[in-house]
Design a binder for these strands. Structure first.
Lengths: 241, 241
DNA sequence: CAGTGGTCTAGACCACTCC
DNA sequence: GAGTGGTCTAGACCACTGG
């Protein structure tokens, strides 16, 4: 159960063992793992040592602790993650909730680039979505989304207006796919014609382009998404210590 | 010495006390703070409690620990921080070191915007620098820099070619000013004429604009800097958990 | 070698949550 | 009230650094 490498401190070996069990899906995101004392007994270590292992996983964002309730496998909240890149406060400075509109949906096959991004063989069946995100009815972002058909087949059966404003909760309820991690790549470019049209921008308008890949617990890519937004609305702040 | 607030756990009170002493400059960046045992004795707590306070400050990036050597006030390494935004690998994929060229330097007075950014009264004496960053001799970034004259007067006396490739080490050696933190704001726009010229770009070329404010230990702004780089060379990756 | 941080233990008591 | 994590203590031993 524990990595037998005697060179590693006990708490790290416990940490690795727990991380592996989490990745293997022994506990689903949102579920509680055993209490400190139970873990300590199981691994034959002191409670403080088990605690240190847990603290490491909390720091990594894999677990969440709540006093009096327990330690839980973290559910990522990717709610309006992408909107942190764009100004969207109302007249009173309050943050506004974006809505979503599904413009198109179709079955497709992975080309070379998509296959690489989703770690699939070329030609694998995929589902493509074209979606608009709006603030107070005004288009802010256009999104092209690709997911593997094998995991996401229910998305094709769903009524178009059953897609809500947030996709990741739908992935979970409709397809049982849970997003736990994301990588985003940011660049600037010109809007392709269909994007410019969807965003009500002039052709070749400058846009910020965010390419996002999201991953499941097991590290497999779940979705690849390219989002376009008007460059002049883009705004991002970074703190460095 | 310790915050008297009995509601806070001891380790947090120690943490606050140490953070205040660091901010007050009791130990300079790079210097060691007292050993765990000494701190524990001084604060009347157990070693483990002092250790927990230290761990918090390490997590915040204010301290660094080295086994067998001690615990040190962190020196920020802002080396080529900004270049993480721009592609600049050579033909062999190896990272390239940018060089710098000081194009202009002059004494000035803070206008309203600058005064706000540097937390100075309007009209305070400042020094402005205009600088070019190059990769293999090709201009990559143009930078407009403003610093308060009071802290940075030696920069005016310095020979223009005594400015090296990195400014922050110079701030420290020539002016005794140590940078410990930064905030960057990223946006997208068109190059003003003098910037386009410096970067050898067509007028109004699309550029990424990074506005950076850097801060001293005591939280006072030390420098405000606007950097411009060609938008098509911009590229930034973010991992989210 | 002395001094430092790193690991580990064992147990006490507190604070919070939920039944 | 039972069970959970949060704080705190006290001390042991190890691993690394530097003179």
């Amino acid at each position: 159960m524990l990595a037998p490498d005697r060179r590693l401190p006990i708490y790290l070996r416990i940490q690795d063992a727990l991380a592996a069990e989490i990745a293997a899906g022994k506990w689903r995101p949102g579920e509680a793992i055993p209490a400190e004392e139970a873990l300590a007994k199981r691994f034959g270590a002191a409670v403080g040592t088990a605690r240190k292992a847990i603290e490491g996983l909390v720091a990594q964002g894999r677990l969440e602790r709540h006093q009096g309730r327990g330690t839980f496998v973290r559910r990522a909240d990717f709610g309006n993650m992408l909107f942190r890149f764009f100004r969207h406060t109302g007249a009173d400075g309050a943050p506004l909730r974006p809505t979503a509109k599904l413009l198109a949906r179709r079955k497709s096959k992975a080309d070379a680039a998509t296959a690489r991004r989703l770690a699939l063989p070329v030609g694998t069946a995929t589902i493509e979505l074209f979606r608009l995100r709006l603030i107070e009815g005004a288009p802010m972002l256009a999104e092209e989304i690709v997911v593997p058909h094998r995991r996401f087949a229910p998305l094709l059966a769903l009524a178009k207006d059953a897609f809500g404003d947030l996709l990741y909760p739908l992935y979970e309820t409709a397809c049982g796919q849970i997003v736990v991690q994301a990588r985003e790549h940011l660049r600037f470019g010109q809007a392709p014609p269909h994007i410019a049209k969807a965003l009500c921008l002039p052709p070749k308008a400058p846009v910020a382009i965010v390419e996002r890949t999201v991953f499941a617990v097991d590290g497999q890519p779940l979705e690849f998404r390219v989002s376009y937004g008007a460059a002049e609305r883009f705004s991002y702040t970074i703190d460095i210590k």
